[in-house]
Amino acid sequence: MNVLTDNFSTYGEGFLGTVELTVYSSLLALVLGFLMASFRVAPVGSFRVIGTVWVTVLRNTPLTLLFFAVLLGLPRFGLVLPFEVFAVLALGCYTSAFICEVLRSGINTVSRGQGEAARSLGMSFSETLNNVVLPQAFRSVIPPIGSTLIALAKNSAIAGAFSVTELLGTYKTLSELGYNIVWTFIWIAVGYLIITLTISALFNVLEKRYGVAR
């Protein structure tokens, strides 16, 4: 028990690190995922190719390899940024591929007549997508996006192993100080549970508020 009370600041720092990483990468992943999803359904062929390649490659890349390439590779091009930024980039890009697929399958759940009706009213592609299809798709993608973001929060642990300030990384400091390693890990686990359960609860609220049973 005193592992937590003695090292509250270390744990707090790690916890905040994880939360920060999760929030920033989620934002990046949502924006990029949205962009790629609209690329994948766009009328222009080369946009579709870009979207498809992005998703296929990133979905099949091990995240550790991506971290390895981004955190240790990009500095060799003279691109020197803090490790946190690199971690956000890697996590965000990786998750964006999954968000894109979720959004695309959400778009596919909207019934065909909606798109046809919008077109027959003379709406353009972006108007159809933004005013008619996406608002309806949004309601059905809330749960899967929640699951993807939970996975993102869990994946942020990998950043900790690449020496970014993060919850999992705290175990090194604490084991050097000679604390009981089992209890150290139990509190780390509790920290992750708090984060994932919070995201889960948040998306349950969103689901109740906006989700519509069709």
Partner: peptide
């Protein structure tokens, strides 16, 4: 579904 407690979803990344 990956993660936890939410209905629906895709294979866990």
């Amino acid at each position: 579904k990956p993660g936890t407690l939410l209905p629906g979803g895709t294979p866990a990344p």
